[in-house]
Amino acid sequence: MLDFQDMFSELFELDDAMDKYEWIIDYGTGTVGLEKQYHTDQTLVKGCTSPLWLAKEESGRIAAWGESSIVNGIASMICDWYNQASQRQQQDFSLNTLTDIGLAPLLSMGRQNGVANLIAKIKTL
């Protein structure tokens, strides 16, 4: 059960912000996102500038899909990590975790609120 930073160590080795964004977008593109049948008003994450959906699929997998490629990538990373994390790791996870490892600053304040809401919602699933 890897820590968030260890699971995505490749990203944290990059220096250039644009390269980081591209890596995040690439990660989202390469991930199977939340199936379209789950894109409903109930699964919509509040506070995001562009639509982002988050839900637990029938298989038990938590997944997300967002219209913004960057937000989609970050949401996919969070879901993938969360699906393999221990209960303790899940409980301790917050926006501060992403701030501490330098990921949150890649997002504007408005988008950080959206990610905070995503984390709050994921804990209810």
């Binding site: 912000a17 644009m18 964004y21 977008i25 500038t49 562009s50 219209e67 913004s68 490629s69 960057i70 937000v71 890649l106 997002l107 504007s108 988008r111």
Partner: peptide, 21 residues
């Protein structure tokens, strides 16, 4: 192609301040 959010965030990484939404 892409969302306006993506463009705004990536321009911001280049210190180019625009607005979107």
């Amino acid at each position: 192609i892409g969302s306006v959010e993506d463009y705004t965030m990536m321009l911001d990484a280049k210190n180019i301040m625009i607005r979107s939404g």
